[in-house]
Design a protein around this nucleic acid. Sequence first.
DNA 1: GCAAGGTC
Length: 829
Amino acid sequence: MELIITEKDNAARRIAEILSEGGASVERRNGVPVYRWGGKRCIGLSGHVVGVDFPPEYNDWRDVRPVELVDARVVKTETQENIVTALRSLAREADSAIIATDYDREGELIGKEAYDLVTDEGDIPIQRVRFSSITDREVTNAFANPEDLDFDLAASGEARQIIDLMWGAALTRFLSLSAKQLGNDFISVGRVQSPTLKLIVDREREIEAFDPEDYWELFADLAKTDEGDEPFESQYFFYDEDDNEQERVWNEADADAAFEQLRTASEARVESVNRRTRTDDPPAPFNTTQYIRAAGSIGYSAQRAMSIAEDLYTAGYITYPRTDNTVYPDDLDERDLLERFAEHARFGDDAQSLLERDDIEPTSGDKETTDHPPIHPTGEFPTDISDDEWDVYDLVVRRFFATCAEPAKWAHLKVVADASGCLLKANGKRLVEEGYHAVYPYHSTTENYVPAVEEGETLAVTDPRQEDKQTQPPRRRGQSRIIETMEQMGIGTKATRHGTLQKLYDRGYIENDPPRPTRLAMGVVEAAERFADLIVSEEMTAQLEQDMTAIADGEATLDEVTDESREILKRVFEDLHVSRDEVGDHLREALKADKLLGPCPDCGEDLLVRRSRYGSYFVGCDGYPDCEYTLPLPSSGEPMVLDEVCEDHGLNEVKMLAGRDTYTHGCPLCRAEEADDAEDRVIGACPDCGDDEGGELAIKTLRSGSRLVGCTRYPDCEYSLPLPRKGDIEVTDEFCDDHDLPELVVHNDGDDPWELGCPICNFAEYQERTAMRNIDDLDGVGAKTAEKLAAAGIESLDDLRSAEPDDVASEVQGVSADRIREWQSQAAT
DNA sequence: GCAAGGTC
């Protein structure tokens, strides 16, 4: 039997299909799909199935000095046991094996891991095939000409694993121990995350150091003197000593003088008219980064964009979403794919229009790689997918269309006019040939109207205006800009960059979108810059890349490279040990700054956001236990301290981060005082204890800012119904027939009043709505997956909660037990 | 419990 091993199940299935000419059947080993035909078996891994780690005796952070990790052995551990077991058992039956993992460096390493596992079970010949896309021609060709595994290339990947682990783990432990931050809130650093964080911190430093400057700009409207002609905007400018056009006037007196001149002018003479046409080329095919950027521009976070693309990929609608490639492979027949779309109700017209071109010569980007094609639709049409998935699918289809479309053409018109010595200019642009914009509405086609005028013509000047402005600090980069910059810096990979960003959020290093660094992040970067500069520099990756190339080329060995890295890290630790206390103090101070609200009203010490033993947040005094002052915070979300300070109490305001339900809580002391002042408003009898004990329902405001309808006998009776946090609640004269309670109306500034109605009915409806939440609302579950789960008997969140992950995984193709567990934890909340 | 890299 010949065993074929691929990097993922999806590739295994498609390769089996091609090589067996559709005759392969699927069976399961340990829950892992195995494709069989003739004397062949084909199994897909799940990326790395083994990982590097330190031996268990290094596990305790307090027992092991971090520097000891530098010389610690690094061992390989099996991380995907079911797949490893399946692979081993297949290997025992095989007479030969073929490694068909992705055609890139990490693929070579994953292949080497499979090689080692197969070799463990017996000595059989093992070969390697390489192909750039899973198409008939490429795959058949590759299997007809098998090669050998490139052990040097795999070793270069292993060197990276070892260096990343050693630096990351040793420095992470050192910083965490020095700041006494163990447990969940450890302080992490790494070769990729830390330069990324520095990138964000550096921009924040520029913003903080920015000193705005005043300047003035002047505008006026111009119009042809013919009647009915629309006026157009023009801007004042002058020539500096180098003869460059300048619009900004840096001195108020000069601006006033120019404005005075402009104000008195009623007409302007056209001095020059310049026309040119500009070609606007269609965009290149999507790689991961450009896809994330485009999805970002229609409102999707990087993480969400990748999650949706992943779903569309596993469902078979788009190609593999993790790719650096921006050149379509030779096998992709663009015309053929367009013809498929020509039949489609939604895309048919646009596809037809493209097919009318004689030659379809798609655009290409700068980078061509061997592992996967650029992201494009497969030609398989989705039927039952969510709105978000449609948004993204539409984007991917139209991007493919755009790459097959004609360039657009713009006509630019620049008019310069003289208004009694004041120079005015107007730049017009008009889209004269729509080109790719006709099929790709994601790029702006905003025109700027300037009419055709002649040199020497007289124009009317109206509405002169002077605007005082200030120079602006550089803008924070959005998520997709950060990912693009990481790509330019050469850090991270197409498959990890969005995850790295997510990690920075999860670790409390960045907040909001566009991301903004916390004080902790500033502290960590500062500490690293002073004592372990390499870990926050992009040079570390650049050097590593060079070393890896040397290993791959046989010019250096894995041991030489890792040993040299060990020596460098040891020297870093010499510095760190001397400054250990200083580093710890610095980090602790930064940690505190993120939680600091202001002075305690009781004792004047610092009030801080703290976390109780039960995991909930509250405001407590740094003087504890001498001072026991506390304030409650809302129970949902993660508190974030804002820059805004409450005028009454001098405390920073607090925002509660809870995804879509994020809201500003404001000053916690204001909220508490409001609750203390608020009268409970009785609205009826308590349904639980009204008859027996005489309990009444009242609208209450809690000190945490939340409001509810609750029993006046609380805490003896705990009956309660939720109310919205915001808005004035009006108690109307209308009563609910079923519950004999008044209907409530919530008034919010600006919005239409919300007729909440009877609070019991409202809560019942709310519960029904949340119960109706479906399986495909879970992150990473698309329509196709939901279908597969339903086929395995999992049709509701309840079914999912009670399911046995391993059983489900063995029944549902392409879904791991870990994935099920992740969904279960989502379904639990 | 540390990293980064696959895949889901």
